[in-house]
Simulated scan of single mutants.
Amino acid sequence: MNIVKSLGLFVLAGLCEIGGGYLVWLWLKSDKPLWYGILGGLVLVLYGIVATLQTSNFGRVYATYGGIFIVMALLWAWKVDGFKPDKWDLIGAGIALIGVCMIMYMPRK
């Protein structure tokens, strides 16, 4: 699978997981209607489906997704919740991203 398509699937999976989790969070923590929770649950199921579209094995995909999730969670918090990541958040996310790209995309024998 080409790297751009693979990264796109990771971003889509991240949006589904974070977005679905956020809808459930709003339902339970911000007194939103039940349909927020139901929609959030459906979006979380979609996350699980999107992740299976990667062509690598389960362990490598989920390890890589963990690092992508770190970056996306910080971006979500910044853009949606008004949380401003500091330099240590950014450095840590960068290290995680470099590591998971090595796990997923480095050539294998």
Rank of each mutant, 00 (worst) to 15 (best):
A93M: 06
T55V: 10
I70M: 10
N2P: 09
D31L: 08
L9Y: 00
Q54P: 03
S6Q: 12
L28F: 14
V24G: 06
W25S: 10
V50T: 04
T64A: 13
V45H: 07
L74G: 05
L44E: 09
D89Q: 06
W25Y: 15
A96R: 03
W27K: 08
G19N: 04
L53A: 05
V100N: 00
F10P: 00
L74Q: 03
I103E: 00
A77N: 05
I103Q: 01
T55L: 10
K29Y: 15
I3L: 15
I70W: 03
V80T: 13
Y65F: 15
C16Q: 00
K79L: 12
G40N: 05
V61P: 03
F83H: 07
V4E: 15
V45D: 09
L39V: 11
Y36W: 07
G37E: 08
I98Q: 07
G82R: 01
L23E: 01
G92D: 02
K87N: 15
T64F: 04
L53Y: 05
L90P: 02
V24I: 15
A51F: 04
T55A: 14
T55Y: 06
N57G: 12
L12M: 11
V61K: 03
G66P: 06
G66S: 05
V71R: 01
G82F: 01
G66N: 08
W78Q: 13
R60P: 03
Q54I: 02
L97N: 00
L7A: 07
K109W: 10
W25R: 14
G59N: 06
K29A: 15
W78P: 01
G99F: 01
S56M: 11
L42N: 11
Y22A: 10
V4M: 15
M1L: 14
F58D: 05
K29W: 14
L34T: 11
I95Y: 09
L34K: 11
G20L: 05
G99T: 02
M102T: 11
F69T: 03
R108T: 13
M106Q: 08
G99Q: 02
A96H: 00
K79A: 11
G8M: 07
K84A: 12
